[in-house]
C-alpha cells in the first residue's frame, strides 16, 4: 500500500493538522508520501520532510496553487494521487473543499472526517453531528479520505529525513480566481480550534451581556461561542453558534453559561474534555453532561469567575 497525504499549510509553515493526518496514514500502514502544493512553499516542504514516518515529499510549486483553489488542487491531486491506494487530507476547510473533487475525478467514493482506522479499508466516523458513530467500509480501489485532526495524536515534527522531489505538473482550470481574504481580526482563537471555549445561551438576556463572557475569555485565551437559542434571539451573530447546525467544537475546557443544553447544542460540544455548566435552573439538561456544575445566577457567577481567575492565573 502507498498513501499520499496532502499537506495543509499557508505557503510558509506546515500546519500541525498535517502531522495528525500522517498519524492516520501510519495507522493504515504502508509508504507515506506527502504532497505540498502551493506557491513559494519550499519551507513547508522542508518541514514536511522532517516529519516522522514520511517516505518522500512531492512539491508542486506554482501560482495556480497559491490560494489553494479547489478547482486546481482537485485536478492536481487526482493526477498525482491515481497511483496510490489512499489519498488523505485534513478535514479543514481546504481539504473539505478540494478532496470531493479528487474523489469525483477518480470516480471513487470519499470517506469524510474519520476519527479512527479499523483496517486499510474500514474507518470510523461521526454522523448526525456526533450523535452516532458509523463504521464504514470502502470498496473502491483508491480510498479518498478526510481526517478529523483531533481523532489522531500527531506524529513527531522532527526526526525524519525524507527526500524532496519537485513535480512539474501544472493544473490551472482557469475557471476560478482568488480575490481577497480577511483574517479574523479578533485576538481570540478561532472557535473551531480553540483550547478553551466559553459560550452563552438565552440566559444571557441580550448581546451586550456577552461582554462579560469576553472578559473571562480574554483571561483564559478562550473563544466565545453561543447556543442556537442565543443566535435565534438575535443576541449574537450566527458564526458564533456551537451545535449541530453551527460549529462542532472539542476543546480542553468548555464553559456553558446560561445554556439549558438542547440536543442540538449538546451535539456540537459534548466531545469537549472538561465541561462546566453555570445555570440557575438545577434541572437543566446541560448538567447531565457537565463535569462541574454550578447552580447560580450567571450575572453574579460570571463576574465572580473573572475575579477568581485573576487570582490564580
Amino acid at each position: 500500500m502507498s498513501i499520499l497525504v496532502i499537506a495543509e499549510h499557508d505557503n510558509s509553515s506546515l500546519k500541525q493538522a498535517t502531522l495528525n493526518v500522517v498519524a492516520a496514514a501510519k495507522a493504515i500502514g504502508g509508504d507515506i508520501d506527502v504532497l505540498v502544493a502551493g506557491e513559494n512553499c519550499g519551507a513547508v516542504a522542508e518541514a514536511a520532510a522532517k516529519a516522522e514516518g514520511v517516505n518522500k515529499v512531492l512539491v508542486a510549486d506554482n501560482a495556480a496553487y497559491g490560494h489553494f483553489l479547489g478547482e486546481n488542487l482537485g485536478e492536481l491531486v487526482a493526477e498525482v494521487g491515481k497511483g496510490y491506494s489512499h489519498i488523505l487530507a485534513a478535514a479543514g476547510t481546504t481539504g473539505k473543499d478540494f478532496m470531493p473533487r479528487v474523489a469525483a475525478l477518480l470516480d471513487v467514493a470519499q470517506v469524510s472526517d474519520i476519527i479512527r482506522v479499523e483496517s486499510e479499508d474500514t474507518f470510523v466516523r461521526p454522523i448526525y453531528a456526533g450523535n452516532a458513530i458509523a463504521t464504514v467500509k470502502a470498496s473502491d480501489s483508491i480510498k479518498v479520505i478526510t481526517v478529523r485532526p483531533t481523532g489522531f495524536d500527531p506524529v513527531a515534527a522532527e526526526g525524519g529525513s525524507a527526500a524532496v522531489e519537485q513535480l512539474d505538473v501544472v493544473k490551472d482550470a482557469g475557471i476560478s480566481a482568488f480575490v481577497s481574504e480577511q483574517k479574523a481580526e479578533s485576538d481570540r482563537p478561532d472557535l473551531a480550534s480553540a483550547g478553551v471555549v466559553i459560550s452563552g445561551g438565552r440566559g444571557m438576556q441580550n448581546g451586550d451581556n456577552f461582554k462579560m463572557l469576553e472578559q473571562v475569555a480574554d483571561l483564559l485565551g478562550a473563544a466565545v461561542g453561543a447556543s442556537r437559542a442565543a443566535v435565534d434571539a438575535g443576541f449574537v451573530p450566527n458564526d458564533m453558534q456551537v451545535g449541530q447546525t453551527g460549529k462542532i467544537v472539542a476543546p480542553q475546557l468548555y464553559v456553558a453559561v446560561g445554556i439549558s443544553g438542547a440536543i442540538q447544542h449538546l451535539a456540537g460540544m459534548s466531545d469537549s474534555k472538561v465541561i462546566v455548566a453555570i445555570n440557575k435552573d438545577e434541572e437543566a439538561p446541560i448538567f447531565q453532561v457537565a463535569d462541574y456544575g454550578l447552580v447560580a445566577d450567571l450575572f453574579e457567577a460570571v463576574p465572580q469567575l473573572e475575579e477568581e481567575l485573576k487570582k490564580v492565573l
Binding site: 471513487v108 452516532a132 458513530i133 470498496s139 448538567f287
Partner: peptide, 16 residues
C-alpha cells in the same frame, strides 16, 4: 460504494 458495517451510540458522558 461505501457499506456501513455498524452504527453505534457515542460513549455517554457521565454527569459530574
Amino acid at each position: 460504494r461505501l457499506s456501513t458495517l455498524k452504527v453505534e451510540a457515542p460513549a455517554a458522558r457521565q454527569a459530574g
